[in-house]
């Protein structure tokens, strides 16, 4: 991911030069390109899912909702628009992290998101496994998603 997009807040629409010079583009810009290509396809659900995710990226500070929105969109478009999905996935992975906790008074452990997990449930499991480094605690694990840096949240 190029440095230019890392410094953009999620809400900033990529209408200027950064996206043009960045190979992965900005997440909102990728969605705009995707929406343009979906116009010609008869798939209302995919279009709605793309619009919903675009709204979340532009207006929401709820990282968990963004992750769920990505998975919903991915379920509709991944086969037909793999490259757009890949760009979105890699872009989100660089902007979001998971925080894992398994005991109330223990500090949370931060871990990277790998959004190639098959489902949100599998994503939770993988985040927990990675954060706990395979340590079986036998305790319920809590996973929450957040922005990688506070400056990127709203």
């Amino acid at each position: 991911m190029c440095a230019s997009s890392l410094q953009l807040p999620l809400s900033e629409k990529n209408s200027g030069s950064p996206g043009l010079n960045c190979p992965l583009n900005h997440g909102v810009s990728v969605l705009d390109q995707l929406l343009a290509s979906l116009v010609g396809e008869v798939d209302g659900e995919a279009f709605d899912a793309a619009l919903d995710l675009r709204w979340l990226l532009s207006n929401s500070s709820d990282a968990a909702a963004i992750v769920l929105g990505f998975y919903r969109l991915r379920s509709f478009i991944e086969e037909r628009h793999y490259l757009a999905c890949y760009r979105l996935r890699r872009w989100l992975e660089s902007h979001l992290v998971a925080w894992v906790s398994f005991q109330r008074h223990q500090p949370e452990r931060r871990t990277a998101l790998r959004l190639d997990a098959a489902s949100p449930d599998q994503l939770h499991e993988r985040c927990a496994t990675r954060a706990l480094e395979g340590t079986a605690t036998g305790l319920p694990v809590r996973v929450r998603f957040a922005f990688a840096t506070p400056a990127l949240s709203h």
């Binding site: 991911m1 190029c2 440095a3 190979p23 992965l24 793999y82 490259l83 890949y86 760009r87 890699r90 190639d116």
Partner: peptide, 24 residues
């Protein structure tokens, strides 16, 4: 400033998509 592929199992389509990004 290109992103590297992770070490380990990577789907073939991710290799292709990642290379497209680098070519761009």
């Amino acid at each position: 400033g290109l992103e590297e592929f992770p070490t380990g199992s990577v789907p073939a389509r991710d290799y292709v998509a990642g290379l497209i990004v680098a070519h761009e």
